[in-house]
């Protein structure tokens, strides 16, 4: 059983098209390395940059690969004003960026798929209202919607809770700005599935509508959802970085890649280029490879588009 699954996977079109595309393999390696770096950052990083006891102010502004003038300590990618190792801050920032990205897409997926199922299966005025809201939201750019939601949510949370809530508010904002794509696709697929015999049979034996939606229709509409999820992940990572860069995202106490770039820009003109450049290059690699991987996945899973 397991053996046949493995051979089937190895034989599949999917893997074949993956092995044929050098670009896809290259981006996969980059994404994999970045994911591993983020996941195991506490073990890879030289120290926890946000644990004050591991910092030495004398190490501030060390250039990459050069021993510090006072302490003689060496940093691969240099250090920032407080003596934090840039390599470690990048790993921790990456961890946060990816966490927010995955959580936001998961939230958008759950919300969008349920809304799409309800709009497609139940229909009526409930479905019409859901799709009308989706249409209106779609006329505005997602980043603007996310900023507004962030602003409103920030206004509602009490002042002393803002710092610790910021990450969850960010996930909420990005997720809410991104559910429409899922809802539209799932609704379309549900409208098709709804009239098929297996659904009518399930209805005939008196299954609850919620049961039919989740157990019967959902598995049959999941294909396109996975493609949208990958592309959404790239968009969510970019949205998170942009919001954090604008200063309306991750707080300075828990910086993501976007926050690091925002901080680094301040040191650009005093000659400490490494504080900006290395986080920027990491984000560049991440955005580019996730995007390329998403494009490839869309082509590979959607033979009609080829």
């Amino acid at each position: 059983m397991i053996k046949s699954t493995i051979t089937r996977t190895l034989d599949s079109d999917f893997l074949w098209s993956f092995r044929r595309s050098k670009l896809a393999m290259g981006s996969f390696v980059v994404v994999f390395l970045l994911l591993a770096g983020a996941l195991f950052s506490p073990f890879i990083a030289t120290h926890n940059p946000y644990d004050m006891t591991t910092l030495n102010l004398m190490n501030g502004f060390s250039a990459p690969m050069e021993p510090n003038a006072f302490t003689g300590d060496q940093f691969w990618l240099g250090s920032d004003g407080q003596g934090r190792d840039i390599f470690s801050t990048i790993l921790y920032g990456l961890r946060l960026s990816l966490f927010v990205g995955f959580m936001a897409v998961a939230f958008a997926l759950v919300l969008g798929v349920s809304m799409g199922l309800i709009a497609g299966y139940v229909g009526g005025w409930i479905g019409a209202t859901i799709m009308r809201i989706a249409d209106v939201q779609l006329t505005f750019p997602a980043i603007l919607v996310a900023m507004l939601i962030f602003g409103i949510a920030k206004g509602i949370t009490p002042v002393d809770m803002r710092e610790e809530m910021a990450i969850w508010v960010l996930i909420l904002a990005i997720g809410l700005s991104d559910w429409v794509q899922f809802a539209r696709v799932v609704r379309g697929a549900t409208l098709v599935e709804k009239n098929k015999e297996y659904v009518q049979a399930a209805r005939l034996i008196g299954r609850h509508p919620a049961f039919i939606m989740i157990r019967h229709i959902l598995p049959n509409v999941l294909g396109p959802v996975m493609v949208i999820a990958t592309i959404s992940l790239a968009l969510a990572i970019i949205a998170e970085a942009t919001l954090s860069y604008l200063g309306v995202g991750a707080p300075v106490t828990q910086p993501s890649l976007g926050t690091l770039i925002r901080i680094g820009q301040g040191f650009l003109f005093s000659g400490e280029w490494w504080i900006l450049l290395f986080p920027a290059l990491t984000l560049l690699a991440l955005a580019l490879s996730v995007n390329l991987l998403g494009d490839w996945l869309r082509d590979a899973l959607n033979p009609r588009l080829r």
């Binding site: 976007g258 820009q265 650009l268 920027a280 984000l283 955005a287 580019l288």
Partner: peptide
């Protein structure tokens, strides 16, 4: 590449290249 990069990253990299390194344009 231009399409898949976030706008602010392009801006920041342009500043680094043209304002800091080449010192041609204001940032």
């Amino acid at each position: 590449i231009g399409v898949s990069l976030p706008t602010f990253l392009i801006g920041v990299l342009l500043i680094y290249l043209f304002s800091v390194e080449l010192d041609l344009l204001p940032s």
